[in-house]
């Protein structure tokens, strides 16, 4: 069976969940399950005016491509889309999108989960907080829980 080519994008613009799903399922009748994940910027009890997302151009796309390839192979996915934004993102706005398609639900759930766990720990993106006064604050610290989430797949 030919493996599907994932759709991977790193962009400053917002994305639209439904149109990304439409692109993935266009003209197909063999997909039985679509699982999507959208990560949003939290306001942290109104202490945050924005998250500024920095990325390593080229490597970010390459790493997302690699993770997507692993997920397609491992869960026999029929399609996979991953979009990650960069730049300043306000509370309530979208940061990341993952859509996994498969014949049955379990592979799609697992595939989307797997991609997010690896994306958080190995795709080169960093978040910096901006306070409500508009001034840059600290860089977000990496969490051990994210490493544990990734390690459950090994």
């Amino acid at each position: 069976m030919t493996r599907p080519t994932p759709t991977i994008r790193v962009q400053s613009d917002d994305f639209d969940l439904q149109s990304e799903i439409d692109v993935l399922t266009d003209g197909r009748t063999d997909i039985g399950a679509i699982v999507s994940f959208v990560g949003l910027c939290r306001g942290e009890q109104n202490t945050l005016s924005a998250l500024e997302l920095e990325h390593y151009p080229g490597m970010a796309e390459a790493e997302m491509q690699r993770i997507a390839g692993l997920a397609i192979e491992r869960f026999d996915l029929m399609g996979l889309t991953a979009v990650h934004r960069y730049g300043k993102i306000a509370p309530g706005e979208n940061i990341v999108l993952v859509i996994a398609a498969s014949p049955h639900r379990q592979a799609a759930f697992d595939g989307a989960n797997f991609v997010m766990d690896f994306l958080k720990t190995s795709a080169p993106f960093w978040k910096k907080e901006h306070g409500v006064d508009g001034q840059p604050r600290d860089w977000v610290a990496a969490k051990d829980a994210d490493d544990s989430a990734r390690d459950k797949w090994s």
Binding site: I95, K120, T121, A123, W126
Partner: peptide, 10 residues
């Protein structure tokens, strides 16, 4: 060669 802190995307 890229040098950077632990990643915090997603």
């Amino acid at each position: 060669i890229g040098i950077f802190p632990p990643m915090t995307g997603g």
